[in-house]
C-alpha cells in the first residue's frame, strides 16, 4: 500500500539515510526508535509536511513524493495533538468536511458518529483548552478520521497521555486497526510497540536497522540498540570460532576475552548475547560446572524493577541481575573484586 524507496533527508541536527520499507493495507506498523532518531520526520515526509532530499514515496503504486499535502489522503495526529484552539470540539472534527462538499446536516451527522465512536459525544461544544490529554487525543483521532484517510499517521500518540488512560487508548487504536484502517505509529516505547504492532521498523541514528514482526525482531535482536530495547544488556560484538572436534565454539569479544559457547553456529562475526539473570556472582573463584569464569570489579549497583543490577567490569562491562537478599548475603559494594560465571549453554551467538 505504502512504499518508501531510498528516502534521505538532511536536517540540522541529524539526517535520515536511505530509508526503505513498505506497509501493507490493514497493517499496524510501528516505527520504533529513541528520541531524535528521526522517526517523526519520516511521518512528516510521508504526510508531505516535509520534502524529501532524495528517494520516492508510493501510495497504492502511485508516486506521491512531490504531491501536495492536501491531495495525499493521509491524516496525521501529532504528539501535541495540534487541536485548533479557537474551534469547539465539533468544529475541529468537522474541519475536514469542508463546506460545499457536504450539507450542514451531513457534516453534523458525521461529526456525531465519529464522536460516538471515540466516546467524546459529551464534549462536542467545549473549547480545547478545557480538555484533558486523553480527550484531546480522541478529538485529534476523530478529526483525522473525518477526512477518511487511506493512511493514519500517529506521532507518539500515547506520550502525552496519563498512564492510566493509555490502556484505553491502546484498545481504541487496536479497534480502529481491526476496522481496516492502516496505521503507522511512531514511538520510543518498546512495550507500546509490542502491544500494538503487527510490523515493526527500528530506526537508529537516522538509519533503519531492522524491520519485521515483533517476535522476529525481539527474539533475535541483531543490533546493540535493539538488544537494549529488548532488555538485553549483555550484548557484545564478537567473533566465533567453531571447533568441529569438540562441538564447542569459542567466542572472542572485542577486548580479547574468550568465552566457551555451546553452539553449532558456523564461524564468523556476529554478536554474543548473555541474559543478565543467567550469570552467577561469587566472592571467590567458583569451582562448578560453569565453563566461563571471569574476575572483575563492581562498577555500579543499580536498583531496578526486577531486583538489583550489578555492573561488573571484567575488561568488558557485564550486567548481572540478582535479588536484594543475594546482594546483602554477598556483601556487594562498588569497587569490590568478585567472580562471575555462567554455563556454556546460557549464551547465544547471532
Amino acid at each position: 500500500m505504502l512504499e518508501l524507496r531510498g528516502i534521505s533527508k538532511q536536517l540540522e541536527a541529524f539526517s535520515l539515510e536511505n530509508i526503505s520499507f513498505s506497509v501493507e493495507k490493514g497493517d499496524y506498523f510501528v516505527i520504533l526508535g529513541e528520541s531524535g532518531a528521526g522517526k517523526s520526520v519520516i511521518l512528516e515526509l510521508i504526510a508531505g509536511m516535509e520534502k524529501v532530499d532524495s528517494g520516492f514515496i508510493y501510495l497504492n503504486s502511485k508516486n506521491i513524493t512531490h504531491q501536495a499535502i492536501q491531495k495525499r489522503g493521509i491524516s496525521m495526529v501529532f504528539q501535541d495533538f495540534s487541536i485548533f484552539p479557537h474551534f469547539t470540539v465539533a468544529e475541529n472534527i468537522g474541519y475536514a468536511l469542508k463546506a460545499g462538499l457536504f450539507s450542514k446536516a451531513e457534516i453534523k451527522q458525521r461529526v456525531l458518529k465519529l464522536a460516538e465512536e471515540m466516546e467524546i459525544s459529551n464534549i462536542l461544544l467545549r473549547k480545547p483548552k478545557t480538555l484533558s490529554g486523553g480527550e484531546l487525543q480522541r478529538v485529534a483521532l476523530a478529526r483525522a478520521l473525518a477526512a477518511e484517510p487511506q493512511l493514519l499517521l500517529l506521532d507518539e500518540p500515547l506520550a502525552a497521555i496519563d498512564v492510566r488512560l493509555q490502556d484505553q487508548l491502546r484498545a481504541l487504536l487496536r479497534k480502529l486497526n481491526r476496522k481496516g484502517i492502516t496505521i503507522i505509529h511512531v514511538t520510543h516505547d518498546f512495550e507500546e510497540a509490542i502491544s500494538l504492532a503487527n510490523q515493526i521498523a527500528v530506526i537508529h541514528d537516522g538509519k533503519l536497522i531492522c524491520r519485521g514482526t515483533p517476535d522476529v525482531i525481539f527474539q533475535a535482536p541483531n543490533h546493540p540498540f535493539l538488544a537494549r530495547f529488548a532488555g538485553i544488556r549483555n550484548f557484545f560484538k564478537a567473533t566465533l570460532v567453531y571447533e568441529t572436534d569438540t562441538n564447542i565454539a569459542t567466542v572472542r569479544l572485542g577486548s580479547g576475552i574468550k568465552i566457551n559457547l555451546a553452539s553449532d553456529v558456523a564461524s564468523g562475526d556476529g554478536y554474543f548475547i548473555l541474559p543478565s539473570d543467567e550469570i552467577i556472582i561469587t566472592n571467590d573463584q567458583p569451582h562448578s560446572s560453569a565453563s566461563n569464569t571471569l574476575k572483575g570489579e563492581i562498577y555500579d549497583i543499580i536498583p531496578s524493577f526486577k531486583g538489583i543490577d550489578i555492573m561488573v567490569n571484567c575488561g568488558e562491562m557485564f550486567h548481572i541481575t540478582i535479588t536484594k537478599p543475594s546482594k546483602e548475603k554477598l556483601g556487594l559494594e562498588i569497587g569490590k573484586t568478585i567472580w562471575i560465571s555462567w554455563k556454556a549453554m546460557n549464551g547465544r551467538f547471532i
Partner: peptide, 11 residues
C-alpha cells in the same frame, strides 16, 4: 504545525 495539520485535512 496547526497550519500543516489543516492542510493534511484537505484544506
Amino acid at each position: 504545525r496547526l497550519e500543516k495539520t489543516a492542510m493534511s485535512l484537505g484544506a
